[in-house]
Write a protein that binds this DNA or RNA. Structure first.
Lengths: 172, 172
DNA sequence: TTTTTGAATAATGTAACAAGATTCAAAAAT
DNA sequence: ATTTTTGAATCTTGTTACATTATTCAAAAA
């Protein structure tokens, strides 16, 4: 009935006992995206643990602290969001570069297409992926499959270099 | 000097002229994620256009409406965020399945490891990726490279099946 | 010694506010 | 009559304030 607590050292909820372990700030979000944003911040939706070759001690629960070794695929694979697009690979002409039929290619238009890079080129209205080779003042689009011949490349009306392939996503 | 505007129909900034074309609400966000969240809501960071084999008419600007043909890698590759982890592949024993040394493997623990699936297994404290084969009442871990022999698999103290590989991310 | 209690303090969702942006009709200039 | 300037009205937006909830722990009670 009378007072029990009172002013004293250590009373009250300690700092840092919030849901995230760090301070928060209100940020104005468009209503249609509030759900996505809350899922992202609350459930670490796209932060997935990354292991090396050692056996993980146990599978971390979402409540655990992924202080290190977490990976967000968007940030990891898309460096320049506004200059990036995806293309689905067709055929097996680049099988030697690890590009299989149906793979998803991440293409960055902001990277310079230098000798040896794998590039996306449109020829006669069709997209194709090849390795760029510059030698003896000429440029070649070289498949990575002995069944296909290199293509003499010169940028013309019907030919355009779209960007450099940075990653290949292969589904099993 | 005197009044010029005044009370009248149509005065003032019209509704819906905000940055997003819809109302906003303050949402409390952990400080370390404010940058990511703002980039997401403002620049549609992780929505990247996806093309088929036709030549894109032009590169869409971030201001355009990506009503269709956009892809978010996290959603696309990680179906069950809480049951998913990444492992970096080592060696070339699964080269035939399109898995190269250094590739990033997306592993889903919620999928059933059935015959023919590519799985992650720990053996003697080390992680390895192989294809699961069940035949004649026995289970084998089969490499996809003729240089390596199949492994007779039985779940024991030092052996654990961690999950099914759903995607392979290969960097160029 | 163990259990109960409530004062103290932090966290959190949201309302409120101040400053900025935008519009348009009235006033002024031409 | 036509064009330009102006500022009141109104919405947007980043941030602060606040009321409510959650949490902790030492004192009081059992």
């Amino acid at each position: 009935m009378t007072s029990r607590g009172g002013k004293r050292m250590g009373a009250g909820r300690p700092k840092g006992t919030n849901h995230y372990g760090e301070p928060t700030k209100p940020v104005r979000i468009p209503v249609s995206k509030i759900d996505r944003v809350l899922r992202f911040v609350r459930e670490r939706e796209d932060m997935v643990p990354l292991y090396g070759n050692e056996v993980p001690a146990g599978f971390p629960s979402p409540a655990d602290d992924y202080a290190e070794g977490v990976l967000d695929l968007n940030t990891h694979l898309v460096r320049e969001p506004t200059a990036t697009f995806f293309v689905r690979a067709r055929g097996d002409s680049m099988i030697g570069a690890g590009i299989h039929d149906g793979d998803l290619l991440v293409v960055d238009r902001s990277l310079e297409a230098t000798n040896g890079k794998v590039v996306i080129v449109s020829i006669n209205g069709e997209l194709t992926v090849k390795r760029l080779r510059q030698a003896k003042g000429r440029t070649w689009l070289v498949p990575e499959n002995p069944d296909y011949p290199p293509i003499d490349f010169q940028e013309q009306d019907d030919t355009h270099l779209w960007g450099v392939v940075t990653n290949v996503v292969h589904s099993l």
